[in-house]
Design a binder for these strands. Structure first.
Length: 133
DNA sequence: GCCAACGTTGGC
DNA sequence: GCCAACGTTGGC
């Protein structure tokens, strides 16, 4: 099982939208690096839902429910299907992640503009631990 | 509103 | 194929 972090602007599509929809197609990604990560995802993988922009915090846990399929008529893009698993006990903010030494190598911190990034298993555990306070 | 960090595009 | 110019994104 692999771990991922998916970023979205909460005003556009946030955690509450996902819960209301009970599942969604994670599409519209138009960056090749992010696209490649989408193609690496497998059913059962876990992903953090990160709110960018206004909130800047990881807010919930999702599960990948279907591997990638082509996204859009033009170009070699991909989308996956996800569903919400649970909201984190409390959000883990970007500032907290930056301040945590064990997250120094976190991909989303190193490549802050990527909307889809992988997490190491240890990093996943650290963030969940932080969320539990 | 600004800036840093990328990614993309187009001219050569 | 390289590189400058430009556009986009996210954080501050």
């Amino acid at each position: 099982m692999a771990y991922w972090l998916l970023r979205s602007e909460p005003d556009v599509y946030g955690w509450d939208h996902l819960v209301r929809d009970s599942a969604t197609e994670w599409d519209g990604v138009r960056n090749y690096t992010a696209r490649n990560f989408l193609k690496d995802m497998a059913v059962g993988d876990r992903a953090l839902f990160y709110h960018s922009n206004t909130e800047k915090a990881a807010i919930g846990i999702m599960e990948i429910t279907r591997a990638w399929r082509p996204d859009g008529e033009k170009g070699d893009w991909a989308s996956v299907a996800v569903k919400p698993v649970e909201k984190l006990p409390r959000p883990v903010t970007l500032a907290e992640m930056k301040a945590e030494p064990r997250l120094a190598k976190l991909e989303m911190l190193r490549q802050s503009r990527l909307s889809v990034t992988p997490l190491r298993e240890e990093e996943w555990a650290v963030i969940l631990e932080m969320a539990r306070g």
